[in-house]
């Protein structure tokens, strides 16, 4: 099986390059995922660099651009991929080495939405009550694994990564706005005002298209906009 992999090593390469790599057919087992293939390729050439950890799509380490589409290597079946499999780092982020990008700008936008529960009441000695219906509002939101596949697939984020918060951060913003226990709605909405932070979303929907967890940031962004309108009238 043939691969074409983006290689960049700042200590050696001036411009990045695409490198052909190959696995013997005998090495390919049925049901193999792309990450399994990458581990075999790394055994061939240990300079090939990528992040990985859980191997089952829950830690969000191995987001990359696979045949032009962002996804997690560990839950992408090899059999479904057109060859040569073209692997590139997540688009729009500074590349540190090979398939590893600097995610700090992405994390900064995540931290900027105050992604934590804010409740000013005295803490009860037991749990705060939340009905199953209220809890259901968080489904499709809390599952985000911060893999950055969505934000780095978003043209608005490519253009303004420092000003537009991006789909991942906005999904988190809505996760707390939608939480019946959170009391910082005004503060959160005020932080999203202006032409860029929220309103650069042009509902292109690449985010929902690529999310490996099946989440829909565009819809969350729509909910935020609607809430803003409701509260302003």
């Amino acid at each position: 099986m043939k691969f074409s992999i983006y290689r960049y090593h700042p200590e050696q390469d001036t411009p990045p390059r695409m490198q052909d790599m190959e696995l013997e057919d005998a090495e390919i087992r049925p049901g193999m995922m792309l990450l399994d293939a990458l581990l075999l390729l790394k055994a061939q050439d240990e300079t090939l660099s990528f992040r990985r950890s859980c191997g089952e799509g829950v830690c969000g380490s191995d987001g990359m651009n696979i045949n032009g589409r962002n996804g997690l290597a560990c839950i992408t079946p090899l059999a479904a991929l057109k060859t040569p499999v073209e692997l590139r780092p997540l688009p729009g982020m500074p590349v540190i080495r090979d398939l590893i990008v600097d995610l700090e700008p992405f994390y900064q936008q995540y931290r900027a939405v105050k992604p934590y529960l804010i409740n000013h009441d005295p803490e009860p000695e037991v749990e705060r009550r939340q009905t199953p219906a209220q809890r259901d509002q968080l489904d499709g939101l809390y599952e985000c694994i911060l893999c950055a596949c969505c934000s780095t697939a978003c043209p608005s984020f490519w253009w303004n990564p420092d000003k537009f918060l991006g789909p991942a951060a906005l999904l988190q913003s809505w996760r707390f706005l939608a939480d019946s226990r959170d009391q910082a709605t005004d503060d959160r909405l005020a932080g999203l005002q202006g032409p860029f932070r929220l309103f650069r979303c042009h509902t292109i929907m690449n985010c929902a298209d690529v999310c490996p967890k099946g989440l829909n940031p565009t819809r969350a962004i729509g909910h935020i906009k609607k809430l803003m309108v409701t509260r302003s009238v």
């Binding site: 934590y116 529960l117 749990e127 199953p132 809890r135």
Partner: peptide, 20 residues
Amino acid sequence: AVYELEHFGVPFSRLDDGRI
């Protein structure tokens, strides 16, 4: 330890009466 987590924001599944 679990009540603290709930206060930290953990989205526990809920019973009909709103408890964890």
